[in-house]
Design a protein around this nucleic acid. Sequence first.
DNA 1: CATATAGTGACAAAATTTGGCACTAATATG
DNA 2: CATATTAGTGCCAAATTTTGTCACTATATG
Lengths: 242, 242
Amino acid sequence: MNIRLRHDTIVRSLRRTGTSTVDALAQEVGASRRTVLRDICALRDAGFVIHSETGPGGGVQLDPQSVQTTARLNVTEVFALLISVATMRAAQNLPFADLADAGLAKIEKALPSDKVRDLRRFLDCLHVGQLSPLQDISNIGPMDPALLPTFEVAFLEKLYLRFQYTDAKGAQTTREVEPQAMLILPPLWYLVAWDPARKDFRHFRMGRISQPECIPGKTFRHRHVPFEDDVCPLSEMNGPRS
Amino acid sequence: MNIRLRHDTIVRSLRRTGTSTVDALAQEVGASRRTVLRDICALRDAGFVIHSETGPGGGVQLDPQSVQTTARLNVTEVFALLISVATMRAAQNLPFADLADAGLAKIEKALPSDKVRDLRRFLDCLHVGQLSPLQDISNIGPMDPALLPTFEVAFLEKLYLRFQYTDAKGAQTTREVEPQAMLILPPLWYLVAWDPARKDFRHFRMGRISQPECIPGKTFRHRHVPFEDDVCPLSEMNGPRS
DNA sequence: CATATAGTGACAAAATTTGGCACTAATATG
DNA sequence: CATATTAGTGCCAAATTTTGTCACTATATG
């Protein structure tokens, strides 16, 4: 059963009053005692911790820390949160990384089940290299956030990605690739993708990608990306080679 | 109406097929055409963008970017995400701060309505000072994340907070205060609170707080915290004074 | 023991959702 | 233009789910 409006009212009332009897709750909510008991049951099933005590002076009590909230996020927003937290975690600069992780795990759980594995793998593939001091990251110019949704759809839906790429020599080509990972080596971002035309993994510098678009209907199966020297030495990634 | 299991099936099917007719969807989902149309209506109401075209070769098509996911987060997790993003935003080190903000705005919207204002105000009060390079933040030792849930409940529920405080001279006192804000001046964290016993705002260094606990039932009304010199000059915050 | 409280099971009443049907509107095709 | 195909709407009865009522058990307090 879903958590509905009345459940929310019950939770709010319990948060306010601390302890309350079921009868009082029923009266406040405008439902029967039986229904409130059923709702409490549903809330417990949903993970809310509700203590209860029988006898005079007893009642039900909500553990405030167990209160959950439902948020409706679109994939882009989930993605942004993921990147925020992943970057933070990689940089190990907050003691809250674990907590944030727990929150993200729940977001993942709420995603269509067949997407979770991909998302998790994507996160695993989101390598954050040695961070420069924050000041350097702030002018991250080369990565245009407006392009993000396209990449994100491609990753989550496993769709081929087509884009214009200008290589280090200025030559422009059209690519159709299987996006595999994003590599963040601040302040530069890279797309790691399998290029079927060249039968090889390639690293594309984000700032050199333009007009990215998903190819509708053309999906691929994820591969594991080996970050090994024979693909492209990471040490060269910040250099002129892309 | 809530987004239920069947809606999810429809969304997944649409994401996979790209375009589909209502009849095909109905067959796949195992419901009548009428019901599927009703579901599509509900999804649109919920913000999903579903294009449709009449006539032969027509059908319905889901805009993948509009796909939303419901996440159930407890307050601690929301809090952790908030802090992550707030810190990131303050440091302006990611181009995604706005996106993440949008996601958090939705999370806030899903919170019990009477808590949103407080939460927003809390975020406003979450001052992040001049950030040191990340390396310095990583040894943030003085702030014990295990204490976070207590603070967070106190903030969200507007409960008095009782704790042991060891001041700079080593003297230990028990405090009962109204938590007003958290101030982050990496690598140090401060609790800004109104101390009714002293009728004044005080700044408590997080690392000097021990055994914090909410005082159940004892709530306060939020005040605006003036970060002005007459309370405690920010310039002195990193010094011995607390 | 009497009272107050949480919690359960069963069943009918009430409310909501679903399916079927007839219909309109739009668009492509011959 | 006629026809077929598709989205979408309004209505109503059938199907399903939720709710309320009642009788009940269990536990704690005085």
